[in-house]
Design a protein around this nucleic acid. Structure first.
Length: 490
RNA sequence: GGCCCCAUCGUCUAGUCAGGUCUAGGACAUCAGGUUUUCAUCCUGAGAACAGGGGUUCGAAUCCCCUUGGGGUCACCA
């Protein structure tokens, strides 16, 4: 029955994702795209982007462009798609209506599909009855045996209708999922699926099979929510006398309560991750880890490494809860792996740098904060003292615990005097100068360094103090210390 | 509810296909130390799991069955 399934595996992979332009670009799209694209690259095959826009009621015009740019942001570029060209144009399903019509007439001719004239009212009444009687929900086949000539004339008379798949009453449909093995469903459990809606547009089931055949798709790697409708697809392939692709259903990302990931319970828009300051490589790394693990325990990796090691067959079947904690850690790791110039560029182009900041300034300050950054959007806050005059520190912050006002005043004054007389304002000069201040005043280190830190940065969690001083420069440092002295004095 | 899928630390997972090397490994998170003028980085350590019950076997996290739990799906949405 499925003898064709193994043949597909020998061919150069042609895989696809088919996002629906119905809203913000979804993290699940990136998740599935990552595995598809990587699999294609490994076999030197093609990764195809198809736009699944057959639902006119949920269609959002802006969505398609957002999907493109989100995918591009992540570096998940495609070989064939709506705008990049490719040998199977068009790649938008709304533009392929003729193709589906042709496909469906073939199905009707071979007796595998039929027009159905039932009204929506009848269908919902039927469903109510079935519910009440606790029967299996589904179409009852009322239009199955309408005479072909009669059906034709009713269609020609303009009667509203859909086209349904004629599912065998008996027997079972089987296919192999590359992760879960053989899946078997009784045909009596499969509904006479609508293939063409009354508006003339195809449903997902028809459009996807028709296009996967037309595009020569070898591996259907998609979310697990499609697993149960795969038998319908298999039936269509068989009715069309086409070989089956290899099916592989990737586990669904989950909310903390284990339900399918949703925007009510999780950030799911790729735009959100971008705005929050996650690096594409970190998000991809994180997504890769949701369902796959490298055998060498090296969990921080780039896409080249991933492509070397990943095997789509090694994807796990569990239900991964989408928990951002590890993503934060990964993001920090990837930030620290980046060259300063690269990081500078990203900060600027992604809009995380203060508008008045110059490229040189950012490059200068960046080494002091990279190990303190988990998301790029924290950059401005953490470097505020560098780019602008910070709000003056609170008086109590200038006086460390167990110290007192007089001590802070003396320490700051001594530091200011020592620093202002420095000929070179470099770490090499600043360190001995401060050491000397410490020694002559015989203060505990924090009694000098904490007031100083607050005086120049107005915050407790600053980068290394000596670096801060050197970068700020003598003039600014002395001015800020002076201000704090005045503050304490008043 | 029917059908289908799934089940290892709080979370992501390795180990399951080819049963012994598993007193179950790693990572994140947590906690405790260390480094340190703060925060962070970094280093060390600790606690933390095979859902339950039956089989098969000399031996089961691994194979089989049942139970339980979770999820998906049952649209003229994808």
């Amino acid at each position: 029955m499925n003898t064709h399934q193994s043949e597909a595996q020998c061919r150069t992979p042609r895989v696809r994702i088919a996002p629906s332009p119905t809203g913000d670009p979804h993290v699940g799209t990136a998740y599935v795209a990552l595995f598809n694209r990587t699999h294609a690259r490994q076999g030197e095959g093609e990764f195809i982007l198809r736009i699944d826009d057959t639902d006119r009621s949920r269609y959002q015009e802006s969505s398609e462009g957002q999907i493109f740019s989100a995918l591009n942001w992540l570096g998940l570029d495609w070989d064939e798609g709506p705008e990049g060209g490719g040998p199977h144009q068009p790649y938008r399903q709304s533009e392929r209506l003729d193709h589906y019509r042709e496909c469906v007439s073939q199905l009707i001719d071979s007796g595998n599909a039929y027009p159905c004239f039932c009204t929506e009212e009848r269908i919902s009444e039927l469903r109510e009855k079935q519910k009440a009687a606790k029967e299996r929900l589904g179409y009852d086949g009322a239009c199955r045996n309408i005479d072909k000539a009669e059906a034709q004339s009713r269609i020609e008379a303009g009667e509203t209708h859909v086209i349904r798949l004629k599912v065998p009453d008996s027997g079972e449909t089987t296919f192999t999922d590359a992760l879960r093995g053989e899946v078997k469903v009784a045909n009596s459990e499969i509904d006479d699926q609508i293939l063409i809606k009354s508006d003339g547009f195809p449903t997902y089931h028809l459009a996807n099979v028709a296009d996967d055949i037309a595009f020569g798709i070898t591996d259907v790697i998609r979310a697990e929510e499609w697993l149960i409708s795969t038998p319908k697809h298999v039936l269509i392939y068989e009715a069309l006398n086409q070989p089956l692709p290899r099916f592989l259903h990737v586990s669904l990302l989950r909310n903390a309560d284990k339900s399918k990931i949703s925007k009510r319970k999780n950030p799911v828009s790729l735009d959100w991750f971008r705005q929050e300051g996650f690096l594409p490589e970190a998000l991809l790394n994180f997504l890769a880890l949701m369902g796959w693990a490298p055998d060498d325990d090296e969990e921080v990796f780039d896409m080249d490494t991933f492509q070397e090691k990943f095997r789509v067959e090694k994807l796990s079947t569990g239900a991964p809860i989408f928990d951002l904690t590890k993503l934060d850690w990964l993001n920090g790791m990837h930030i620290r792996r980046l060259e300063i110039e690269d990081l500078t560029e990203r900060l600027i182009s992604e809009g995380f740098a203060p508008p008045e900041a110059s490229r040189e300034q950012i490059t200068t300050i960046l080494p002091l904060v990279t190990e303190r950054l988990t998301r790029l959007n924290e950059f401005s806050d953490k470097t505020e003292w560098f780019f602008a005059e910070p709000n003056p520190p609170a008086i109590e912050d200038l006086i460390p615990k167990k110290s007192d006002k007089t001590t802070s005043l003396q320490a700051l004054t001594a530091a200011k005097d020592a620093l202002s007389s420095l000929d070179d304002f470099t770490p090499e000069k600043i360190i001995p100068a401060l050491d000397e201040v410490l020694e002559t005043g015989s203060w505990k280190k924090p009694f000098l360094f904490m007031p100083l830190r607050f005086a120049v940065t107005s915050r407790r969690d600053s980068p290394d103090l000596v670096d801060v001083l050197a970068i700020l420069g003598r003039e600014t440092v002395c001015a800020r210390i002076r201000k704090s002295i005045e503050l304490l004095d008043s």
